[in-house]
Computed example of a mutant assay.
Amino acid sequence: MKRFVLFLLFVLPFATSAQEKFTVYFDSNKHELTKKQSDLLNAWITSNKESKVVAINGFADEVGTNSYNDSLSQRRVNFIHGIILKNKVKIREDFKTRSFGETFNQSKIKAENRKVVIHYILPKDLARENEILGIKPEIAGIVNDDAIIPIEEEDMHFPENATLMEKIELSKPGTRIVLKDVLFYQNTFAIVPTSRRAIDELLMVLDRYPKMRIEIQGHICCVHTDRSNLSLERAKQVRRVLQSNSIPSNRIKVKGFGVSHPKYPIPEATPEQAAANRRVEIMILSK
């Protein structure tokens, strides 16, 4: 199973060894702790009232379906998060959670994969919090995104059947590229499961180009007005998925165009034209 996380928060990459971690383990198919593990967690809480939690990551073993393990690992994260909140341990304002399901098994011993890992910073290191998390201050005015001139994908004349990675390699700032297989349930911003491969491909591109910034642009079809701002909400949902897979928010902007930039006139003459209008694109802001 490839990495793909469908929930709303994201986790930042952790930059230095000053970030600590604490792990608790679960019985098979359980999202609550045994008494022994609960005692260990309570002892950690007692010792870390002044520490700050920056992320909670959940894992599961390979027993069961992928979707079940994704759900189970998220329930484990939620359970631990609830205990931490109840005990008023400090949590970073942009606190992150991440659920790996069985995706990142690192041990052949299944019991070692049924876990939740709490990432935190000790009180003595809090003055260096942003440095530890790899967060650099943004310098205003360095990049003027509004000055970028959009370039339609058709005008780039990419090779036939070029992959997203290949298109990115040939692109420059302003290039728009359609994410062809990112699809949504009708009249919602919920991404359908078949979009997983396309999202994974985009994640690979963003990993390959760590300095690249993009704008996710949403478009809808078949109506004359985007009354519910659905195009923007769909763009935001794609951003949430990227953020939940460790892509920092300062690399991703979003915009909803409604039906103002159709590929074909509205009303569309064919289902194929409607599908072409109903799309998500990325525009490269910088590489």
Rank of each mutant, 00 (worst) to 15 (best):
D155C: 00
N105C: 06
N130A: 12
I135S: 10
F10W: 01
L126N: 08
E268F: 10
K253F: 07
H119F: 04
H81T: 02
N277D: 11
P13R: 08
Q237I: 01
N229T: 06
Y120H: 02
K167F: 03
I91H: 01
L183Q: 13
I168E: 09
I139M: 11
V53A: 07
F4L: 13
K36P: 03
D27R: 11
K108T: 08
F189V: 06
K86T: 10
V117H: 07
K90L: 14
R251F: 11
H119R: 02
H31I: 00
Q74Y: 09
N245Q: 09
K115S: 12
N87I: 00
G134D: 12
E112P: 07
S171A: 15
K136S: 13
V192S: 14
E272M: 09
A269K: 15
D125K: 01
S246A: 11
I252G: 05
F7W: 09
P193M: 10
R278M: 11
S71F: 03
Q19C: 08
A269M: 13
F4N: 15
D27E: 15
K255Y: 14
D39T: 08
L183V: 09
F104L: 08
L202N: 05
K35H: 12
N113W: 04
V89N: 01
D39Q: 14
N130T: 11
R208W: 00
V241F: 01
I216M: 04
T194Y: 12
N57E: 13
K115H: 08
P123E: 05
V89P: 01
N250K: 11
S249T: 12
E281I: 00
A235I: 09
I142G: 03
D125R: 01
E169Q: 14
I56P: 04
V280S: 03
N229S: 12
K136W: 07
L206C: 02
K108L: 05
I191W: 11
Q74D: 06
